[in-house]
Design a protein around this nucleic acid. Structure first.
Lengths: 104, 104
DNA sequence: ACCCTTTATCGTACATTTGCGATAAACTAT
DNA sequence: ATAGTTTATCGCAAATGTACGATAAAGGGT
């Protein structure tokens, strides 16, 4: 097993991963919705989006895999919340990225 | 022809588009590189990345299509720079998204 | 045990992304 | 005209993303 070394910085790799998670309007909607409600059930999100339940579930999985949200089971429901730690990390990465010269 | 109305806000659509452009480490590298040099030729970027010239050109096209960079021809070369106007817009969108407070 | 509710996962289909080599295009210089 | 330099585009292949319906899984309540 060879250790693949990326030609990119850790920050670039991490930020690209977060950016990919943010690259679909439905996922942005979910994150903003979660942030507003500070945690809610999958059903609440499904009700708000014009797509099948399975599709919403898939978007939630991607957000979870990216570390931006976390879920806790409350049978038979699942409650999702923003993962504040990683949210902060993402925020810092984007902030640093855009701040290179001068803002606004 | 029916006018497709998106269920998402304009901000969400715009931000998703920018996020997609930022979702590859090579494109983050290019943007940071351009910002550091404030404009440079395609060849300079190709020299810095471990991928074929055609692949770099494709990434540049995506960044250009997303509005984050702009190119001016200086035959036979092409010079690319960050599109400051859209860069600011993207920054504002991400900033607002990540916190109603402040991004710093 | 049996249903009911809720969510995740599977299988499928189609579109998009990513990377490459080869080639075209645009312009300079000789 | 010809050759050289630089970049964009094409054609291809493999991988990934997106959406759906159907089904499985995990409990709770009766």
């Amino acid at each position: 097993m060879t250790t693949e070394t990326s030609p990119y910085t850790v920050q670039q790799e991490k930020m690209a991963r977060y950016a990919k998670a943010l690259s679909h309007p439905a996922r942005l909607f979910i994150l903003e919705f979660l942030d507003k409600q500070s945690c809610c059930f999958v059903g609440n999100i499904v009700d708000e989006l014009p797509m099948a339940q399975s599709s919403v579930s898939q978007h939630l999985k991607e957000l979870k895999d990216a570390g931006l949200i976390q879920g806790t089971v409350d049978p038979p429901r699942v409650q999702y919340c923003v993962n504040r730690k990683n949210w902060s990390e993402a925020k810092a990465l984007f902030s640093e990225f855009f701040e290179v010269e001068s803002m606004v």
